[in-house]
């Protein structure tokens, strides 16, 4: 971001986050502005997005899911926009940094704990001892259950981060192959087309992975919240 960015400690990552947030808001605002009974293309797209997340939240969490719908919606489209913005040339995928994904995952984790404690109270802690297990095994089972519970934000964040990093490393590698092959002379020039074709195919794969990872993040958020609101 140059001298100004350096003095403000403002890097590409927060800039792309702001761009992602503005894009999502603009999409919804511009899409829904006509508010027509028979929607146009953009409005239909915005309504489909709304319905998709709304159904996901209500189907997974249950009737209480309506309260968490804005949170899940924001999370899904922020991650989706981040993943897709990262695919543009000269752009930056902020979801490929573990700091960002871990912050998002910890936010989900803390929210689910707070909701659990509020809904279930002290019974929340009873979940750490599987019902029906022998009491003698408690010293072994409780640490395992706690570790399994604590691994949630880690798996949530590592999955998104690792998928985005792996995709971008593959782009980088095949692009580097093209440059290396182009240095080999005439035949190298011909073979160098290969990695470019592979990169185009990878771009399609990354479009799938970007949507899928945002979906998995959102659905896991819903699953954790369902457990939190379950009585």
């Amino acid at each position: 971001m140059g001298v100004i960015g350096e003095s403000l400690r403002f890097s590409q990552s927060p800039m792309m986050m702001i761009v992602a947030a503005i894009l999502v808001l603009a999409f919804l605002y511009v899409g829904m502005r006509p508010a027509a009974v028979v929607p146009g293309r953009l409005q239909a797209a915005a309504e489909i997005c709304y319905d998709f997340i709304h159904n996901m939240a209500v189907d997974t969490i249950g009737p209480e899911g309506r309260a968490f719908f804005p949170f899940v919606f924001t999370l899904f489209f922020f991650i989706l926009a981040g993943n897709y913005l990262g695919l543009l040339p000269f752009s930056f995928a902020f979801t490929s940094h573990i700091a960002v994904t871990l912050a998002l995952a910890l936010m989900v984790f803390c929210l689910s704990i707070i909701v659990s404690l509020k809904v279930q109270g002290a019974r929340f802690f009873a979940h750490f001892m599987p019902a029906g297990a022998p009491k003698a095994l408690a010293p072994l089972l409780i640490p395992i259950e706690i570790l399994s519970f604590l691994s949630r934000p880690v798996s949530l964040s590592i999955r998104l981060f690792a998928n985005m990093v792996a995709g971008h490393v593959m782009f980088d590698m095949f692009a580097a192959f093209t440059i290396m092959l182009a240095g080999l002379g005439f035949f190298g020039d011909i073979i160098a087309v290969g990695p470019v074709v592979i990169n185009i195919a990878l771009m399609a794969l990354e479009l799938l992975v970007g949507a899928l990872q945002a979906y998995v993040f959102a659905i896991l958020t819903c699953i954790y919240l369902r457990e939190a609101v379950a009585h």
């Binding site: 570790l147 691994s151 949630r152 880690v154 798996s155 590592i158 998928n163 998995v216």
Partner: peptide, 14 residues
């Protein structure tokens, strides 16, 4: 896609 990270992440936490 979930299965692999589930296995690793618990080990990381441990």
């Amino acid at each position: 896609l979930r299965a692999g990270t589930e296995l690793v992440s618990a080990l990381v936490v441990g």
